[in-house]
Amino acid sequence: MTATTLKRFAFWLQAAGALIFLALPKLGLGAYWLDVLNMVGMYAILALSLNIILGHAGMFHMGHAAFFAVGAYTTAILNTRLKWPVFAAMPFAGIAAGLFAIAVAAPIIHLRGDYLLMVTIGIVEIVRIALVNDIFGLTGGSNGIIGIARPVLFGFRITRPQHFFYLIWGFAALSMLLFYWLEHSRYGRALKYIKEDTVAAEGMGINTDRYKLSALVVGAVWAGFVGAVYASQMRTISPGSFNFWESVIMFMIVILGGSGNQKGVLLGAFLVVGLPELFRDLQSARMLVFGAALVMMMIFRPQGLIPPKPRNYTLPESLAGKYP
């Protein structure tokens, strides 16, 4: 079997897998497991957006739950106070998260890796404390906001788990496609360069601070969108859902799966969010296992389970043979 047939075979295998996956609700999967898959999908999208920041730009960002929270609360406030439909509020959720990212990250974007990590943890805590303290009298304190409406798409009201399944995984597929294009653009290459060698990137004329900030904003906007979906699926949000551990879970998905690779991130989401559901009795020990797994991974396979492949470029016909 030649390499091309093998590649084609792998492609069709993946396509068939995706089709079977999409047919799962029709194949009689229970509501409980659909909810689990919805959760996996939501975290997968969050991790895909974090992947731009952590996997491509190489910034140790552990405050993603803060942007997720801003998106969810923006949606909830617009929906319950102004009666906006969820899908109308969604763009504003993204914009709010993006603006928040610019405001908090612009002064700290130049910090070296581990310092950035500490500061972003601090930002998550500040956001959570602000939400608990009912900031601006809008967030409802530690009880949160209740009674968020279900999303309505072209007159169809999305209520049941299987409806959300298609909404979330459709959104995940769209995110993968868009982020794939982003990765393979001039912009994505610049981010990779910054990750590999910031000084050299700056020497090549890349404005590293601006690229890093824009990567953070792209990730934040996307997390804000997911926040909107989350708010309308849960119908009730409270500060407890946006704590430090949510950020840790997103971080782990990207690192364990393979930072910089979408397939790795998807696998990570299934492992970190989905797998513990299979072992419900061991629920309390799951973080213990993940902590140990992180240490082991860093010792034996620091690049993650499915690391990104090195890029190949084919030479143009005219140059073939001239350069080895």
Partner: peptide, 24 residues
Amino acid sequence: ESDRLSAVVSALGASIFFQNAIML
């Protein structure tokens, strides 16, 4: 002598491990 990210993530893993060990 591996890179900084590995050390940070390993430390984070150890931290998660310790915290949950204390809880259990």
